[in-house]
Computed example of a mutant assay.
Amino acid sequence: MGASRSRTARWRECLSQIQQRGGGLEIALDQSDGTNAPASNSVVWRVRLYAVDDSALTIEMPGALGTSFPIRNNAKLIAVMAIGQNRWLFRTRVLGQAVTHVGRREFPALRIALPEAVERCPRRRTSRLSTTSLQLPGAQCWMLLDPESAIPAEVANRARINELLRSRTCERPSPELEAVLLPTVGPSASAELANIGGGGVGLRFSRENCIELDTRHYYWLKLDLCPWVPAPLVVTARLAHVHSDASQIVHAGFAFDFSHDAEHRPFIIEQMKRCMRLMQEG
């Protein structure tokens, strides 16, 4: 039996290995309709795996920037575990909320059902998650040349989204408006929003469509969470880490940066919280 097939057969051992190393899973609400059509703009959350027992997994409650976003009991989830460049998908459901202790601190957690089986994700797929189940949201990334110029752009983004929420409409900005709202930026690249977690996001770029990524630079991110957020969110960020996989996909982790505009932090939290709530309402 090949190494990858052997690991698939020993998936419980793989989960325990991830937990012992302080690793995590990627989860998303299962919004599939029973067909093979992918759900549109499925948001993936990166969560820590706290415990594995005979009937359940205990995972970190999804969230961002220190705020947790609860998921209702019995909600269906799609999850992915990874060891190296090998990834496995499984379906599960929420059993209930819990509390876990890390050191002296308490953290909200979820207990989810132990999977009955796992499915290996082919390396050559562009998405970590099965393309028959999820469609990742789009994103855009620019090198930010002047962080101060992002302040009025973030203020305008808050005003625009709040106005659309009041009018209960959802619209795409025109190219002319996009240009006006841009801060002082350099080259840009399209990406996929791979996950949200901790204090930032993970983006995925194709190697042929990737700008220079360097931890010394600031970046300007545009995250498309429509229809749950009526217009794309924009935010300043710093590069935390970057690597390429065997499929020549560039994975980059960004940490949000609010040092120039502290008022944007609660706004980003509120919009991501809204996104989680509306996804559960269907």
Rank of each mutant, 00 (worst) to 15 (best):
D245H: 02
D261N: 14
C14I: 02
S259V: 11
L233D: 12
R160H: 15
V102P: 06
R274A: 12
L239H: 08
A240W: 00
R160G: 07
F69S: 01
V242R: 13
S174F: 05
R111P: 05
R124L: 10
V94E: 10
I27T: 11
R91H: 12
C170G: 13
Y219A: 09
L213Q: 03
A252H: 00
I59L: 06
R72K: 13
T8P: 02
A231E: 15
R166Q: 13
P115N: 06
L129F: 04
E26T: 12
G96L: 14
G22K: 08
A246S: 10
I18T: 01
L182N: 12
V180D: 10
L165K: 08
N195L: 00
R87D: 10
V94N: 11
A237Q: 04
R72P: 01
L221C: 08
E154M: 15
I18S: 00
V118N: 02
V229Y: 11
I211G: 09
V80Q: 12
G200R: 02
S149H: 08
A109H: 09
M143L: 14
I78M: 08
E208T: 03
T132L: 06
L110D: 11
M81T: 10
G103E: 03
P173I: 04
H260M: 13
K222H: 14
E116C: 05
D224W: 10
L129C: 04
A159K: 14
V201K: 03
T8Y: 04
T132Y: 01
W228K: 08
R72H: 10
W228Y: 15
N195Y: 08
M81W: 06
E212D: 13
V44E: 02
F254H: 00
A255R: 08
L213S: 02
A9S: 07
P115G: 06
S188W: 13
Q248T: 03
V80P: 03
C226T: 14
